[in-house]
Design a protein around this nucleic acid. Structure first.
Lengths: 250, 250
DNA sequence: CGAAAAGGGGCATAAACATGCACGAAAGAA
DNA sequence: TTCTTTCGTGCATGTTTATGCCCCTTTTCG
């Protein structure tokens, strides 16, 4: 593995996990701790990471947990969420899973909305506390702390007895050919079930997720009904539109 | 855990709770008091906190935003929660339902705890985000916004397949003769189920709840194993102790 | 005052670190 | 090609850091 490649990987891991431990990286990337240390020193001197004893932290936001992560989030996601609002109407049964963009959506839902929301994300459930005409159904399961959603066999089984008009799917990675993918199997299983019980599916995607792939495939992209994104390269937009997806990007 | 991470957590806790006690932090963050002292000293020298004997205070806004009553009551609840901590040990399966006192308990659980926590309260699930050795199992159901817990037939059914070593019951009203009672039927049903699947039951009760009654009876008080309270009138204390309950009130 | 809690300084130790050196692979020049 | 240079890496070394423990002092509070 090339040095550049490795350092890129470290940055990506750091971005996902908010911190890295030198000794841990050494094992995961199969190089000596010395090499990792040299990498970290270099990345730090470039101002890309914050080096600390034992490892490194993400530079900008001192992220400590999910609840703070959402407060520092960017306007792009808020804007996407805002565009998606129009698809949620009174009397609907809306299924919302995890992800920061989805959380923004939940927070922007009008207080007057009369609907049923099904979710496996505790943060989303809580954020609907003040919506007195929204019935919130929480899906149980084992809390998966990386993405703060409930997963597992119990979650899938609970979904067996439900159906939804609209599924707001949190997107981790999406590729027009390969499909929608996530890093863990149990997440893929639950999302797949959610796809199956929903009439329409909406995904909000920031451009950095477009045409990237992770380990476990949830479903092909042509399952999507709506794709809400930032402004897209016309070629890419066409790729999705040709699959019958309604792309909202202006 | 990295030093910077820990200090970040301290700042966050301080922000939430307006003050921190060194000995308490030591338990919650699972490091020695010496380390906490060094952290606090460091944060103080950076001007981020105000170090005082036995702990630290928030730098910025002085604590006057809550009514005194509210603050006092919060501190009582924190103290109760603190007393209850000793009953939670590694490898236990702990069932925790809703209530502000229970939430305080969850927030004070040591980071080093290795256990399984089952809860129907999304806030409690979220507060265990940083406890990497605590497996959190969330009970699904319909979110009951008055008390922020999931209730309903799904909740009861999920409980059918579980058992717990200790049930930390949130108390709404309690009376030595009539028993433990709550204002809604579905809450009573879920709590009753939780009682049935638990080996021991612990309740934390502020004195204003003692000998009061609500609409739906959950169970008689003699089902309780432990009753953690503020200092009690000896007569009242005897009433509970005579039922075989271990009363902790010092 | 006196006990108990909190603090401070010093010490020990394990983990993390910096540095110099050696080896091998890739790149470039003869 | 073959020799030389450079670069990235791993290893051995002595150093620094983070932390817990001990002992003694200071503070708090009944």
């Amino acid at each position: 593995m090339l040095k550049e490649e490795r350092q890129q990987l470290i940055l990506q891991i750091l971005n996902d996990e908010h911190k890295v431990i030198a000794s841990d990286l050494s094992k995961r990337l199969a190089v000596s701790e010395d090499t990792i240390r040299r990498d970290l020193k270099e990345l730090d001197s470039l101002g890309l990471i914050k080096r600390v004893h034992s490892g490194a932290l993400r530079k900008g936001p001192p992220v400590v947990d999910f609840s703070t992560r959402q407060t520092i989030s960017n306007e792009t996601k808020m804007a996407l969420a805002n565009k998606a609002l129009e698809f949620i109407k009174d009397e609907m049964v809306v299924l919302i899973d995890g992800g920061t963009t989805n959380l923004h959506l939940a927070q922007q839902l009008p207080l007057s909305l009369k609907a049923t929301v099904i979710t496996n994300c505790p943060h989303i459930a809580i954020s609907l506390n003040n919506h007195k005409d929204v019935e919130v159904i929480m899906l149980g399961g084992t809390l998966f702390k990386e993405s703060m959603v409930n997963l597992g066999i119990d979650t899938v089984e609970a979904l067996n007895t439900m159906r939804a008009d609209l599924y707001i799917m949190g997107i981790y990675k999406i590729d027009a050919q390969i499909g929608i993918s996530v890093p863990s199997l149990s997440e893929a299983l639950v999302k797949r079930k959610m796809v199956n019980i929903s009439t329409e599916i909406l995904a909000m995607v920031t451009s950095d997720k477009i045409n990237t792939v992770s380990n476990h495939i949830v479903c092909p992209t042509n399952q999507l009904t709506y794709l809400v994104t930032e402004q897209l390269n016309p070629d890419i937009k066409a790729m999705y539109a040709n699959q019958g997806i309604q792309v909202i990007d202006e």
